[in-house]
Every structure is written in C-alpha cells, then in structure tokens.
C-alpha cells in the first residue's frame, strides 16, 4: 500500500520572503498514528495547510495514498479530513447544518449527509446542540464540532492541528479515546500538539520540526530509549538532613522532606529503593520530574538553537 503521506523537498516561502518550510521530506505510513511536534512558528500549520490545499506550495511534491497533489487534487482532497488550528465556521449557522453542508461539499447527497452528521454529532457528544448557532457554542464544543465536520466524508487520513488546545481534561481524555478508536479501525491520523503527554500516550511515530526543517523522525519508543538519565522527585515520610551517598544515584535536596534522584539507565528503581531502605529513608510517593518526551524535546530544541548560534 502506498504511504498515507509522502512529502518530498517541500519548500514554502510566504509573500514577503519568510521561508516557513526549507525542504521538508516526510513519510507517514498508512494506519500510523503520527505526531508532528515543534515550537511555535516551526512550520507545522504551514505544512498541514499545504497538504490540505489551504496554502500554496513554492516547490516540492505532496502525495497522499499515492495521489499527487498537483496532478489529482480532487483525489487527494477526498482522502483527507482536516481539523484546523483556528476556528473557521460560519458563526450564524446551526451546528448540525455546518456538518451537513460539509458533507454536501464532498458530494454526499443530503439525505445520507444527515444520517452521517447525526452519527458523528452523537459520537462527539454534540447531538443535543445540533440546532445551536455556532457562535453560541463553547470553545471545547467548537473543537469537537471541527472533528465531526472533518470526519463526515469518512477520510482515510485525518489531520488535526492542535485539536485539544483549550479543551478541559475530561473532554481531552474522551477525545483521546475517540481518536485511538478511530485509528484502531484503520484511519491514519496525524496530529500536532504542544502537550507532549498527548503525543506520548497516543502516537507511535513522531517527527520534530524546527525552523522549517525536520529535526527528527523516529518512533516514540526509540526516542524514549535515548534518554540516558531520568530524574524522579521523592516525597519522604520523615525528615532527612544528611544525604547518604548511594553509588550510581545522584541525590539532591529540594527540602527536608523532598529529594530529587537522578539515575541512569544501568540502574533500576528497585535498586534505588533497596539503597534508600538500607539508609533508613522511607518514601511516600514518587513522580517524574518532567515528562520524558518533554525533556528530550527541550534538549533537542536547545541543541538546535546552540547550533544556530554556533553557525552564525
């Protein structure tokens, strides 16, 4: 099967001269759940905009399930469902009509469009709101409506640009479950997010884009495997004033009842607890100091900035 997405040497220079994409190559396999990460202004939305025909490319090639964007734009567009970063609704239309109209644009006759709109509005918990004008929906409801609208023609590739921005925790969790389910049923999903926890819990593969270039393209598992050290924060039962020295673990005081432990991959948490117990230190709870992906991500972006400074 051809890949869901194959982008080759993609360049975008906006009017005014800003080069937002500097020759991007990216391949996403059919069936994948793929995260596109990168700092603000890295070029994520520009890349997505070109794939979805909202932004014109300067040069390069885009293929979606083997269809070329230049040669057969209608086939490419039929394969894609887009959830954009910014709201783009007619605010005076009822929510249900927005979804039905979108189906119509894809050529789905109105009767069938109504059936599908109901299905997706129910799945996204918006059916009760079908007659509410868009401007009267909350931000989180609008986000979910964008997902319903993007799915109504049953695309093989769903692209979501920061789908959970401004969405509360409960709904975010239910959106995750929904997307996982959709992916399990065969829809390829690409999403951008600034919540690395989201990428870690949803996605299998990942690309990091920085300053218009792909800095990294790998699997999440492989990326996490690269972490050499991890830092945990321990809450202690009693007070500890003197830090024992434990081989292989670096201990630091946060306060009398809290320790930070840095450990490398040769050691295990079992070993850490054995050592602590031997020294009479009892632990109430423990957490990661930082989301692991977040740590890697920041390292990588820092590295890039350092490189850029070094080069100039």
């Amino acid at each position: 099967m051809p890949p869901a997405l194959a982008v080759t040497a993609l360049v975008k220079t906006y009017r005014g001269g800003l080069q937002a994409l500097k020759g991007v190559d990216l391949r996403v396999d059919a069936g994948d759940f793929f995260a596109l990460l990168g700092p603000n202004g890295a070029g994520k939305s520009t890349l997505i905009g070109i794939i979805a025909s909202l932004v014109t490319k300067t040069s390069g090639q885009v293929r979606v399930f083997g269809h070329d964007l230049d040669q057969d734009p209608e086939a490419v567009k039929s394969c894609i469902g887009l959830v954009p970063q910014e709201f783009n609704f007619n605010l005076f239309l009822p929510a249900g009509e927005v979804v039905v109209n979108q189906a119509g644009y894809y050529g789905i006759p109105r009767r069938e469009a109504r059936v599908r709109a109901e299905r997706y509005l129910r799945q996204l918990d918006l059916w009760e709101r079908r007659d509410t004008e868009m401007r009267r929906l909350s931000g989180g409801m609008k986000r979910r409506l964008m997902i319903a609208r993007a799915l109504v023609h049953e695309p093989r590739l769903l692209i979501l640009d920061e789908p959970t921005a401004g969405v509360d925790i409960e709904i975010r969790r239910s959106m995750w479950a929904f997307l996982k389910d959709l992916n399990a049923q065969g829809t390829t999903i690409i999403l951008t997010t600034h919540y690395l926890e989201e990428a870690e819990s949803l996605c299998r593969n990942i690309a990091i884009i920085n300053d218009g270039e792909i800095a990294e393209r790998t699997s999440i598992a492989a990326l996490l495997g690269r972490l050499h050290t991890e830092t945990f924060v321990l809450n202690l039962k009693g007070r500890v004033t003197e830090l024992p020295s434990l081989g292989g673990f670096v201990l630091n005081h946060v306060d009398e009842c809290t320790l930070e432990v840095e450990m490398n991959r040769e050691h295990t948490i079992n070993g850490l607890f054995d050592a602590l117990s031997r020294n009479g230190i009892e632990v109430l709870s423990l957490r990661n100091k930082q989301n692991r992906l977040e740590r890697l991500f920041l390292d990588m972006v820092d590295q890039n900035h350092a490189d850029a400074r070094g080069a100039s």
Binding site: L54, P84, N88, N90, G107
Partner: peptide, 12 residues
C-alpha cells in the same frame, strides 16, 4: 470568517 476553507479543503 475563514469558512471558505470548508470549500477549499473539499474536492469541489
């Protein structure tokens, strides 16, 4: 209001 994008992404 950018809802022209609804048409631009569609195969119309």
């Amino acid at each position: 209001s950018r809802y022209v994008e609804e048409l631009l992404v569609s195969p119309a």
